[in-house]
């Protein structure tokens, strides 16, 4: 018996896992930040499904807005590519 919540959680957790792996393995750091933001968006949907609207309200601005902005400032001022 599959409820829609469980199916959606499965989808979003899978998206988060894939994009977390892509973010860690990506050599171009700006792309890594974007992948990390996608992973965070998937987690935001997961939090909504888990019955936590408070966490969604704090999580979306923090991890989709502020972290990428700060990291992009850092990357623009330092190095853009990670050497293997």
């Amino acid at each position: 018996m599959i409820t829609p919540e469980l199916a959606l959680m499965l989808i979003f957790v899978s998206i988060a896992f894939v994009f977390a792996y892509l973010a860690v393995e990506e050599r171009k750091l700006i792309r890594a930040v974007v992948y990390s933001a996608v992973q965070s968006a998937a987690f935001a949907f997961l939090f909504y499904l888990l019955g936590a609207p408070d966490i969604v309200l704090v999580y979306v601005p923090v991890t989709v807005g502020i972290y990428p902005a700060a990291l992009l400032f850092l990357i623009r001022k330092t190095e853009e590519v990670e050497n293997p």
Binding site: P53, D54, L57, V58, P61, G65, I66, A69
Partner: peptide
């Protein structure tokens, strides 16, 4: 509104602070 209704609906000081902190980022960019 998130801050001032934080005791009635989902929200509160932390959520509202994070939401407002996005505004200076957008303005700077």
């Amino acid at each position: 509104s998130i801050a001032l209704h934080g005791h009635l609906t989902p929200g509160g000081g932390f959520q509202a602070g994070a939401a407002l902190a996005v505004a200076p980022v957008i303005v700077i960019v």
